[in-house]
Nucleic acid binder design. Structure first.
Lengths: 123, 123
DNA sequence: CCGCATCCAACAGGATACTG
DNA sequence: CAGTATCCTGTTGGATGCGG
């Protein structure tokens, strides 16, 4: 006998799940780089700049697990691994970019608010 | 002599700034509750459920600093504090809810991908 | 009622060194 | 080249107690 509000808590889980993935330090950057087409591990590493090997691996594993990117290994020597957005990943990019665009358009207002807030505190 | 790419790094800062705020544990929940109108501190605390006093305070301060909510103190005894979305806050809600809706619509696909991924690893 | 201060556990994330 | 393993740090967030 499932409570009728079950879907509510579940929905919250779903939403904050996605939001936290989007909010972590590198995911959005990686996904948007992959938006231009498939890239190899080190191509990603270089075009991003500042990301550690560990975090790139971790981020990509998470994205792969959630079905946002595919990982293709070419068994050559030296090895070569391509990462590419799935359909799901490209669809995610739409609302995420909308949010990004909003951020760009309104960052000045946010910065102004911060300056105002900090001014009323420090001195 | 500012480098011509300056705005690029700045843009990144702006975007990841907003994304991290949105991605933290409670911000979106708080903002969406406030979407229905102003609420007092403990009203928020109760309708959310599971948030600690400390985190609610921290979250609200951050939102206030960034200009997303206003904080109104009524100097009564006992004190009463109302929080309300600003115009900026309400505008933020638009792309954020779009992302939330996307999450709800696609959570099944994500869960399926996770199940597939985990199945191919454990045994 | 509102919120700050403190302590503490858990985790995110960076640097480095080592493998196939 | 593309990882895995290890260590170490800062930050996040929960619990509790005090104060206006």
């Amino acid at each position: 006998m499932k409570p009728r509000h079950m879907h509510l808590t579940n929905d919250c889980r779903a939403v904050s799940d996605v939001l936290q993935r989007v909010g972590d330090k590198w995911t959005v950057l990686v996904v948007s780089k992959l938006g231009g087409g498939p890239l190899r591990f080190n191509e990603l590493r270089n075009t991003i700049g500042g990301i550690s090997q560990k975090m790139l691996t971790t981020t990509l594993r998470g994205l792969e697990r959630d079905g946002f990117v595919t990982r293709t290994v070419f068994p050559t020597i030296p090895p070569r691994v391509d990462y590419e957005l799935t359909d799901l990943g490209r669809e995610l990019l739409v609302p995420v970019q909308a949010l990004g665009d909003w951020a760009l358009k309104n960052i000045d207002r946010v910065d102004a608010a911060r300056a105002r807030f900090d001014a009323g505190r420090g001195p």
